[in-house]
Simulated assay, not measured.
Amino acid sequence: MRYAPVDLSTARWRKSSYSNSNGGECVEIADGFPGLVPVRDSKNPQGPALVIPAEAWAAFVGCLKTQG
């Protein structure tokens, strides 16, 4: 399934609460996109971002929590 492009030029990114304090290996997400979760690598903020359906993101995070 393909989705229409999402304009992330005004996205406000925040780091994962699980990111370390050394600034490496951080995942950032942007809020404010109903039904979607934009995700990017904080080490490459100008690089590509993934835009994931919120339902799939919730399932992914849920799996991570159970692996914890």
Rank of each mutant, 00 (worst) to 15 (best):
M1D: 09
M1P: 11
R2N: 12
Y3G: 03
A4R: 14
P5A: 06
P5I: 06
P5K: 04
P5W: 01
V6W: 03
V6F: 02
V6A: 02
V6I: 14
D7I: 06
D7S: 07
D7W: 04
L8Y: 05
S9V: 08
S9R: 15
S9A: 13
S9D: 14
T10R: 14
A11Q: 06
A11F: 08
W13Y: 13
R14I: 11
S17W: 08
S17Y: 13
S17K: 09
Y18K: 09
S19T: 14
N20C: 13
N20F: 11
S21E: 15
S21W: 12
S21A: 15
S21D: 15
S21Q: 15
N22D: 15
N22C: 10
G23W: 12
G24S: 14
G24C: 13
E25Q: 12
E25A: 12
E25H: 10
C26M: 11
C26E: 08
C26K: 04
C26T: 10
C26L: 12
V27C: 07
V27G: 05
V27D: 08
E28L: 09
E28W: 05
E28H: 09
I29S: 03
I29M: 07
A30Y: 04
A30E: 10
A30F: 08
G32R: 07
G32S: 11
G32P: 10
F33Q: 03
F33K: 01
F33M: 07
G35L: 06
L36T: 05
L36M: 14
V37G: 02
V37Y: 01
V37R: 00
V37D: 01
V37W: 01
V37E: 01
P38K: 03
P38N: 08
V39S: 02
V39Q: 03
R40F: 09
R40I: 06
D41Q: 09
D41V: 04
S42T: 07
S42N: 13
S42D: 15
K43T: 10
N44D: 15
N44M: 12
Q46M: 12
Q46I: 08
G47R: 07
G47M: 10
G47H: 11
P48Y: 06
P48N: 08
A49W: 05
L50W: 09
L50I: 04
V51L: 03
V51N: 01
V51Q: 01
V51T: 11
I52F: 00
I52K: 00
I52G: 00
I52N: 00
A54Q: 08
A54F: 04
E55I: 01
E55D: 10
E55F: 02
W57F: 09
W57E: 01
A58H: 02
A58Y: 00
A59M: 01
A59H: 00
A59F: 00
A59L: 01
F60Q: 03
F60N: 03
F60V: 03
F60L: 09
V61I: 14
V61E: 09
V61M: 05
V61N: 04
V61A: 07
G62F: 03
G62N: 05
G62V: 05
C63M: 11
L64D: 05
L64I: 11
L64Q: 10
K65G: 06
K65I: 06
K65E: 11
Q67D: 13
Q67L: 13
Q67T: 13
G68V: 07
G68I: 06
